[in-house]
Design a binder for these strands. Sequence first.
DNA 1: CTGAGTGCGTCCAAAATCCCGACTTACTGC
DNA 2: GCAGTAAGTCGGGATTTTGGACGCACTCAG
Lengths: 138, 138
Amino acid sequence: MARSLEVVGEKWALLAVREVFLGNRRFDEMVRRIGAPRDTLAARLRTLVEAGIFERRQYSDHPARFEYFLTDAGKDLYPVIVTLRQWGDRHLSEQDGPPAVFKHTCGHPLMTRLVCESCGEPASLPSRPPTFTRQPAS
Amino acid sequence: MARSLEVVGEKWALLAVREVFLGNRRFDEMVRRIGAPRDTLAARLRTLVEAGIFERRQYSDHPARFEYFLTDAGKDLYPVIVTLRQWGDRHLSEQDGPPAVFKHTCGHPLMTRLVCESCGEPASLPSRPPTFTRQPAS
DNA sequence: CTGAGTGCGTCCAAAATCCCGACTTACTGC
DNA sequence: GCAGTAAGTCGGGATTTTGGACGCACTCAG
């Protein structure tokens, strides 16, 4: 977890990932949509490429222009994004309801659900945090 | 999503939340375990309390000592933590495998799964980002 | 050809944040 | 009395972020 956050926990990082999921692969497009300082976004894209989450592909030379694509590791961030959105929709949405929605091919929105790894049972969160085993660290 | 990150996306915030899930509710304990600067952690705890994720309860006066508990909104962050851990375990774990494991009451670890909100079908991620509807912003 | 516009950055100075170690206060246990 | 613990605060330096301007290599309209 700590490791995840090191890679993906910096400001703007996850928003950039979301943008690529939404199909906005170009620098300017992202700047416009998420409102990050160009400088910071450039740095963030670099670290995300280094971390193997984005792949930077040239789509034109003279002038060299690049697009960012998700690697497999990047695509695996999808549940993180959905989960975060879910939480925000639940606890932070103001008058204007949930915006940007990702849809399943069947036409309905996606969500994540907590399940037990082995029995698959959709573990509803107990009122008290679930039982856990404590171990060195994470 | 952007809103979620504003609340929970600051450095150390999610690690603090995780600690409370693990049952470490005291300031010093958290400092020791996550290694954040005392200063920063103090600030973070304050913002998390303001955001309604933690509740600060006094457990002794003379000297006044406090513990942090999760509110309902805080408990709802559980899937976010699990999802993040899952991703880290998958893509970032080095020789030392996944540490700190949360377990379901049946004794097995928990995980999150992407499902369709209506059909419940465990939507596996399509090779290409899923279809989506684009809307103003998030 | 000229001038405007676009795309992807970089540069810089100011502001905000973060980090670290030391310090404080009020206990408890030896 | 002395060490230790707990929950911070304080001062200051180090690091990041921010926003605006700038550069460059095009393309397009006139």
